[in-house]
Design a protein around this nucleic acid. Structure first.
Lengths: 226, 226
DNA sequence: GATTCTTGATAGTAAAACTATTTAAAGGTG
DNA sequence: CACCTTTAAATAGTTTTACTATCAAGAATC
């Protein structure tokens, strides 16, 4: 007996729900590991199939192409983050505290869903940092937005924006600040690792706490004054 | 008689300097237009070659692959922005005013270099907005960073960071704020166009002035308090 | 126990990404 | 200006990626 937290994603993301079958779960699990290892550009369904002792065509039964597989993984991640933020901020009245907890949850990559063993959340977070922006930097953005692929991300942005407006109703850019915080959390981690002169965040002793402080400085700094 | 402003880029970006030959300049000019039209994923050297009545192999003489061509274009853009910011802020002493002018220059995409007629700066700016992040979101970032491909971008970030530190020496994240402003200027424009609920910026009557105000609010809002 | 339905394997095609070789043109030298 | 050298560009490939069509085996249903 246990409570399991199942993540259900937009049906248009896949041809066959990968969570339903053994092969599907192997595809998710190993695509996360493989993309992390070799990067999204070098990642192919052929390489993935070889890794799981299956074939290219079998993978194509689940996902139309590798881009949609990536979007699936990113949706999975944001859905999980959104759940955790909602969970962690429930019953917290003070919007300052809500925003603080939301930011903390956002940068806490390691926390994993115990009921889903085929997703390594920490590795997935690395993928979000390294490849996340590729979800909406394509010529299909508008079509995919219409299909609802970015609904969770937008909802997450709204949650943060509502906090922001509650803290300071006179602040003119709640949604822009919210999306900037979401983007920064990954961007600055990416810079810390690859282009360190673009940020004060360092890789030493885990940049988790540093990113959290950075985001808090930005958010509360902007909201303190009108 | 006229002063011409020539942009010289890192030699490792190309196999043969495209600015030196007629074909090279046609490659630059038409790759900008073609990437803008069909997006970077669909862009191929074959399609480009057909468009300029040349061949794939001829294009390969100038650029190792399409990724390096994109990085070349992005470097071109940032080099031009950097020049304009330096030019526009020269002799301005007050760091507030320097930062204000820098932000304004940053969002002024339309201003073009009269001595280079084969680059449409406005179209190029659209490419930077849509595809810019792909420059350093690859598994080659570190190698390309070592080759100096991001030197200009980093220098631009430093210029802004120095302004920021001059305005408020006690602000703990000058470089992170600088890189965030650089990224935001394109990101928020991208959101305005494709995912409008993520920002207050709208597409109506040109989002130029709006992005400028947004960036100023962020920058000066964070620097006003300690 | 036959049949439909699902799932995975095999074998292919088309296009993209890149190379090697050949041909043409330009530039300089005796 | 004929010859040689150098460089640019075209032709014709190969390999890899992305994707499809067909087929076979096994499970579920009637």
């Amino acid at each position: 007996m246990a409570i399991t937290i199942q993540i259900k994603l937009n049906e248009n993301l896949y041809l066959r729900d990968p969570q339903d079958t053994k092969l599907g779960r192997k595809i998710i699990q190993n695509s996360i590991l493989l993309i992390d290892e070799i990067g999204f550009e070098d990642f192919t369904f052929k390489k993935l199939a070889d890794r799981i002792n299956s074939t290219e065509a079998s993978v194509y039964r689940y996902f139309e192409n590798k881009h949609l597989l990536l979007v699936y993984l990113l949706c999975w991640y944001w859905e999980w983050v959104k759940f955790r933020i909602e969970f962690n901020t429930i019953n917290i009245e003070d919007p300052h505290q809500r925003l603080r907890v939301a930011i903390e949850t956002l940068v806490e990559s390691s926390q994993s869903n115990p009921s889903v063993d085929f997703v390594d959340e920490e590795v997935l977070h690395r993928i979000v940092i390294a490849e996340g922006s590729k979800a909406y930097h394509t010529k299909w953005v508008d079509k995919e937005n219409k299909k609802g692929f970015f609904t969770t991300y937008k909802a997450l942005c709204k949650t943060l924006a509502d906090c922001i407006s509650a803290i300071n109703p006179r602040f003119a850019y709640p949604r822009a600040l919210a999306s900037t915080l979401l983007e920064m959390s990954n961007q600055q981690a990416h810079f810390a690792r690859h282009l360190p002169s673009l940020t004060e965040i360092t890789m030493e002793n885990g940049n988790l706490i540093q990113v959290k402080q950075l985001l808090e400085t930005f958010a509360f700094g902007l909201l303190a004054i009108t």
